[in-house]
Design a protein around this nucleic acid. Structure first.
Length: 580
RNA sequence: GGCCCCGUAGCUCAGCUGGAUAGAGCAGCGGACUUCUAAUCCGCAGGUCGCAGGUUCGAAUCCUGCCGGGGUCGCCA
């Protein structure tokens, strides 16, 4: 259950009552009415700004209007107190009968607590990673991978129908370079001396096994062929090998995409031509000239007429070219076809997780979506900033030598997927992130991964002990008497648990999965505080032999906290460990 | 030069799309362990929210202009 939805209904009902009486204009906009938990618990459990937002349309002073709203809310038995404070806030304290209902609902939902139907089954496509199939994933891909995966889970948890998608850039010049690089390794596998890897080819050692596999499969027969003949063979072979490797890398992080979409299929199936025909029919393209790029010297700039998409009609800065000077299609042309394909599959939200270096690309993607969807779909881009690697406070030096970079696998192998996934969500996506190999495995307060998992493990530890100390009854699902939870530390935790569904919805709306990570740290802090309070005040402990009713209630309470932690951790893709 | 992102405690960062006295952690100082896991907790101290205007009941948050940092700027992907 979501207590904020519950209160919103009450408030809106009161507002309707005032509208019926002519106090507020019937057409007054109530969309800005907020229902939230006040920062200061002294202000009550829930607060609303309704009076302040509607004071102007009502032609009243906020506090006077608040009086009228509060009068209508006061009748409600679910509210213990309704106060007006400050400039016109209406603060509500939930009656003591309310919290038990919340906790009952949590117990009933278990680890599904937090789920909502906000998305109403809306189809959402989340495209993330989409790294070129030319080598293993490196740390730079790591953040977007985790971010996208957590966002997908978050959207799913809030009632969206999510497709996780990976766009394979298997049509550009970079895969020809891959093919030539692999061919070199093929010759090497056949015993030829290939010397230094020429500049412009991929020197990475990960292509050595690809060369060996090519040798096994084709023997020496590719050696006698002309490049134009062997290149497609080697290219397909290498791309398949690279994608297998990338899938393995992602699997190490427990990431699995439902759809791997090949750029090449857009070309091969004629979908780009179809798209262009479509654009022409709707007068969205034309032959024209672009101004030269500003800011940097354009030595090879050549003014020419080319096929342009009218992206500036849809919010972009300039129109964008669809064809290169040699007549082949630009990457952008394929992207237009790709967006068209996504829209044809019925998605209402196209989410793109990109590196910060793609910031300049967002406007044109949105322009395409606007032009093709006619406003039926929304294109949302989230840019992930760089991850800086440290070890014991010292930056990890990355050699400029090509091919020598820290791979995603290196990081996951060293610290484990849980740590990587949690840490990648401890910053807003648009802020740079520092990742220190030593700090993230530290078992201390300033390591959030540990701190949250420790809270979960501690709860599990108590539940284990309870079975021994209280006997089998402790494990039974006896109806807890929630009114026995009265300590401020306990109440703080209950309120925190009540916030959770709202946090998820806000995070999903904003496409900001990091909010889940921050919430879990707060929830864990509340729990650790209660735990330690039990040290000074033994009557606050969870297991009190001789007080079975209190013990069973507190154990149930611990389960409720655990459900909340487990749900959040699952969205983040982090294992809720049961002992440490 | 155009566009995008960022600027909040000494440090690293939150701040619930405009709410009340701006919050955490680290570092500093002072406390709590014969433990339901002290791997934790409690307290103190720390701020012109980059600067200057504007919008309104109310601004860290929105608009404008500066300052500083990063990214990006046909025919790469």
């Amino acid at each position: 259950m979501n207590i904020f939805h519950h209160i919103r209904e009450k408030v809106l009902k009161a507002l309707d009552g005032l509208k019926a009486r002519g106090v507020i204009p019937v057409d007054a906009d109530t969309s800005r009415v907020s229902i939230e938990a006040p920062r200061d618990p002294a202000h009550g459990d829930v607060t609303t700004n309704a009076a302040m937002v509607l004071a102007r349309p009502a032609g009243m002073r906020p506090r006077d209007l608040a009086e009228k709203i509060a009068a209508l809310l006061g009748d409600d038995t679910g509210l213990e107190a309704v106060d007006i404070a400050g400039p016109g806030f209406i603060n509500m304290r939930l009656s003591s009968a309310f919290w038990p209902r919340l906790l009952d609902a949590v117990m009933e939902q278990g680890e599904a607590y937090g789920r909502s139907d906000m998305g109403k089954g809306e189809k959402v496509n989340v495209e993330y990673v989409s790294a070129n199939p030319t080598g293993p994933l490196h740390v730079g891909h790591c953040r977007g991978a985790v971010f996208g995966d957590a966002l997908a889970a978050l959207l799913e948890e809030t009632g969206h129908e999510v497709t996780r998608e990976y766009y394979i850039n298997d049509a550009g010049a970079q895969v020809d370079v891959l093919a030539r690089s692999a061919f070199l390794r093929y010759r090497q596998a056949l015993g030829q001396d290939i010397g230094e890897i020429p500049a412009g080819l991929y020197p990475g050692e990960y292509l050595i096994p690809v060369g060996q596999a090519l040798a096994r499969e084709h023997g020496e027969k590719l050696l006698d062929m002309a490049e134009e003949d062997w290149l497609p063979i080697v290219r397909d072979f290498a791309i398949t090998a690279m994608m297998d490797m990338i899938r393995d890398d992602l699997a190490a992080l427990n990431i699995r995409h439902e759809v791997f979409f090949s750029e090449r299929t857009l070309h091969e199936k004629g979908l780009i031509e179809d798209t262009l025909a479509d654009l022409r029919a709707r007068d969205l393209v034309y032959m024209g000239r672009l101004p030269p790029p500003k800011g940097k010297p354009a030595e090879d700039w050549e003014d020419r007429e080319q096929l342009l998409f009218r992206s500036s009609d849809f919010g972009d800065d300039i129109d964008r070219p669809l064809a290169k000077s040699d007549g082949s299609y630009t990457y952008f042309a394929a992207d237009v076809a790709y967006i068209r394909d996504k829209l044809s599959r019925g998605f209402r939200q196209l989410v793109y997780i990109l590196g910060a270096d793609h910031g300049g690309y967002v406007k044109r993607l949105q322009a395409v979506n606007k032009a093709l969807s006619g406003g039926n779909a929304e294109l949302i881009a989230r840019l992930c900033q760089l991850v800086k690697l440290y070890r014991g406070g010292q930056p990890v030096r990355m050699s400029k030598r090509a091919g020598d970079f820290v791979t995603l696998r290196d990081v996951v192998d060293e610290v484990g997927p849980d740590v990587v996934r949690f840490m990648m969500l401890t910053r807003r996506n648009d802020a740079p992130l520092d990742f220190d190999f030593e700090k993230v495995t530290e078992q201390s307060r300033d390591n959030p991964v540990f701190y949250v998992q420790y809270a979960h493990a501690r709860i599990c530890s108590v539940l284990r002990n309870a079975a021994q100390e209280l006997g089998e009854k402790a494990a039974s699902a006896a109806a807890p008497d929630w009114t026995l939870l009265t300590d401020p530390a306990e109440m703080a935790l209950i309120r925190r648990i009540g916030e959770y569904p709202r946090v998820l919805e806000a995070a999903a709306r904003a496409h900001e999965p990091h909010r889940v990570a921050f919430y879990l740290q707060e929830l864990a802090a509340d729990f650790h505080a209660l735990w330690n309070k039990g040290k000074e005040l033994p009557q606050l402990r969870f297991i009190l032999p001789g007080q079975m009713d209190v013990s069973l209630t507190r154990l149930a309470f611990l389960r409720a906290i655990r459900y909340c932690l487990a749900n959040g951790l699952r969205i983040m893709g982090v294992t809720p460990v049961t002992e440490m």
